[in-house]
Amino acid sequence: MLLSVRDFQVHYASRAGMVRAVDGVDLEVPAGSIVGLVGESGCGKSTLGRALMGVLPDAARVAGGSVVFEGRELVGAAERVRREVRWRRMSFIPQTAMNALDPVLRLRAQMLEVLMERGGLGRAAALARAEGLFRQVGLDPGRLGDYPHQFSGGMRQRASIALALALEPALVIADEPVTALDVIVQRQVLDVMRDLQARLGIAMILVTHDMAVVAYACDRVAVMYAGRIVEAGGAADVLERPRHPYTMGLTHAFPDVHGGTAELVPIEGSPPVLIDPKPGCRFAARCPFAVARCFAETPAMVGGVACFRAAEAPALRTAAALPATWAA
């Protein structure tokens, strides 16, 4: 296993108290696969991605758990070890390339910076490599002299991908890489990522809120809700036969997963506040199938799903397909 995350915890300090943004996450990423990390805004998926890179805002800290990457434990590792891993072995594609690229530096300077300072290449070799990378992601190497603002959103995202691939990492964490783009450009960028991932044998964690993106690009998927993984498995399995009610809700809340024209049904309510969360399943308050036990005990992850009623999944799926089930 390229990356194994066990009982991972990230806490944020806030005025109201400590927020458990990532609260006991288990995640496995096999080498060379694309794992979708899906969930709604605020579920902790972006925080998880950033915490794996080891770069968190000042208010946040890793509070526990283990992250084993290429056989090395990263939680509590020395800064020297972290820096060795950063970008060389594990790189990052940010949410929108808008501000992720330094606005006052030409793309060439930003590529050379990574290739020379982190990659140890000489200037000429780095330039040649930068041109090659631009070609790989479908950008004209002649545009290396441009500033980020002269690029369209899709081009900036391609440039970010080129940067992420610059040092041939084993794992790329992509945080909502296509969210800010229109659907056609989304498809193009996803194709570039999928193609390069397959050709270079890179593993990827694709953080997204969009089930359609998971269906299109991912081999495996982990569904995250309120700081925890609630369901995980092969992408096709999970999307076709979801066993957690939250996943069922998600598949109906997004268009075009199955190419059907079914009515979109929102999941009513909002996720719980993650300061001193109550015991019990965190989705129980919004779950149409919740029973008394769901509010009292926290379901453990068993066979890829954390739900007490997982055994009844086929019946629940039938019920979940009816919009009336989700009406508050």
Partner: peptide, 29 residues
């Protein structure tokens, strides 16, 4: 607080590069 500073940290750039090349250059405008 800008994202490109976070990215510079993720890239594992030296503190000098982050502060001088990216932060100060932008803050000076």
């Amino acid at each position: 607080n800008d994202e490109f500073i976070t990215m510079a940290k993720m890239k594992g750039l030296s503190r000098w590069s982050i502060v001088m090349r990216h932060a100060a250059r932008n803050a000076l405008l």
